[in-house]
Amino acid sequence: MFIFTEASEARIKKILAKYPEDRKLSAILPLLTLAQEQEGYITPEAMIEVGKRLDVSPAYVESVCSFYTMYYTKPVGKYIVKFCINISCHLNGCDNLLEYTEKKLGIKEGETTPDKKFTLLKEECLAACCEAPVMQVNNKYHVNLTPDKVDQVLASCP
């Protein structure tokens, strides 16, 4: 069973107030984001709960959820490391850096370390092309990367 925390409930109230009363389905992405923040990924139970709040079926929630790449429907690591692999980063050596990070973490792209600390993912353009190569760790930008900088960032994750 999935229950939104009290803090989440307060935020849900604010989120719903953004949209016309008869258009609360507009809140589906923010609510899914909240559910994911709470549990790390989106469980089937969370989809049922979000559906109840917005008067849509769990199947509808899943169809929306599966469309967007930022939602995880399986457990992920405490830190999600996302490497931009698009053209500007590619021209600046992101492939070597990704390979370096794979070796360092001992996992392949798409995998999670056995201690569940890091999940390593490829990401399409992160819109920081003038500071390539770029990665995000739990949605925080790290730019102008070098192997040393990757080391520093990963070491700073408690």
Partner: peptide, 27 residues
């Protein structure tokens, strides 16, 4: 004015897909 966050989909930059997404649909 309200801020609304997407959730990862390039196509939502196409104006009609963005409106679908803003209404709570697949983008």
């Amino acid at each position: 004015i309200h801020n609304h966050m997407g959730a990862g989909a390039y196509i939502c930059g196409e104006e009609s897909a963005m409106l679908s997404s803003l209404e709570g649909e697949r983008g």
